[in-house]
Amino acid sequence: MSLINYLVLSGILFSIGAVAVLVRRNALVAFMGVELMLNAANLTLVTFARMHGDLHGQVLAFFVMVVAAAEVVIGLAIIVSIFRTRGSASLDDVNLLKN
């Protein structure tokens, strides 16, 4: 199977993630969209590492996972504190700053 297929797949995953961030109204689902985008980037990195026969891409993917984990910690802390204040994690309710 050609390696290009993996790149196409990561492109599709990245787009699904981006659309999820823009369209979904639940903070958690939007956040999962971001995670999907990061993992799509990981897939691209690993595929290119395979193409170039070079390890840098794979090492980079590990770093991205660590950063994504740190991001989850901070993101969930923020979303949970908002949920406890308002009883909802809907992004439509978060509109006090509009005016």
């Binding site: 990245f14 971001v34 985008m37 990061l38 980037a41 691209t44 290119f48 891409g57």
Partner: peptide, 13 residues
């Protein structure tokens, strides 16, 4: 930062 990372991946490729 997800966009940034995808850019990094493409430049690496």
């Amino acid at each position: 930062s997800a966009f940034f990372l995808m850019g990094v991946a493409l430049l690496y490729g």
